[in-house]
Amino acid sequence: MLKDVTLGQFFPGKSVIHRLDPRTKLLILVGYIVALFLAVSWLSYGVVFVFLAVSIAISGIPLKSFFKGMKPLMFILLFTGILNLFFTQGETVLVQIWTISITLEGVIRAFFMVFRILMLVTGTFLLTYTTSPIALTDGLEALLSPLKKIKLPVHELSMMMCIALRFIPTLVEETDKIMSAQKARGADFESGNLVQRVKALVPILVPLFISAFRRADELATAMECRCYQGGDGRTKMKLLRMHGCDYGSFLVAALLITAVCVLRGFGL
């Protein structure tokens, strides 16, 4: 059952978006989010939507996987939608029930808010779907490296992220094993109320933590044996390089932001 857990799902591929430098993708994502929040009208939303739709089309990632990833967000989407629907003040009242009224402004606002969240999440999905976790951590490290000047442990953070990603499947497998072992001794995880179920997790968590600490200790020794001394003087096998398509993508992203800004300037 735990095998289904997927984090940072990556769909390997050969599209232009896949081949972009992770730094480019991260920066463009930030730009895209800014544009999304600057958008105020149907037209500017449309521009951002076209940008996203074209990007998805180029990436060749099936739309189905985006919908799948959206499922856990249903509650937030509904909540935002309903909140905006009922609590936006407006003049054109559509429906009036007791003291609660639904206005045309409310409907439009709710639609925009839900649409904004959907586009925001889809954009980030596109990044994680087309970029391997290791490229992503590399990109983050490279982008954040100026912060080393103010003593932020950028390399250490990215190393930690990389190791965490590496050990997620190992620990998931281990949890599965421990669960089976405890079930074999008569542990019951599936019945009882919430409190009982949480309590039943203790015999899983204790061995899992002990084993995780032991693994950490052994890994640290192994890393030391391989001359790990932190980020100083370390080189990389795969250097990040910007190509023509990276600059092209920056241009498109810049156009997007400019377009949204100009439209906003015209009050659209």
Partner: peptide, 30 residues
């Protein structure tokens, strides 16, 4: 040095990245 448990000495989540870990630490050119 190679240890007993293979899981606890592999650092990266791609085989070649893991093999590169040692040489990267030594500061060898890409």
């Amino acid at each position: 040095m190679v240890f007993q448990n293979p899981d606890n000495q592999i650092v990266a989540n791609v085989v070649e990245e893991d093999v590169a870990f040692g040489p990267e630490n030594l500061g060898i050119a890409s």
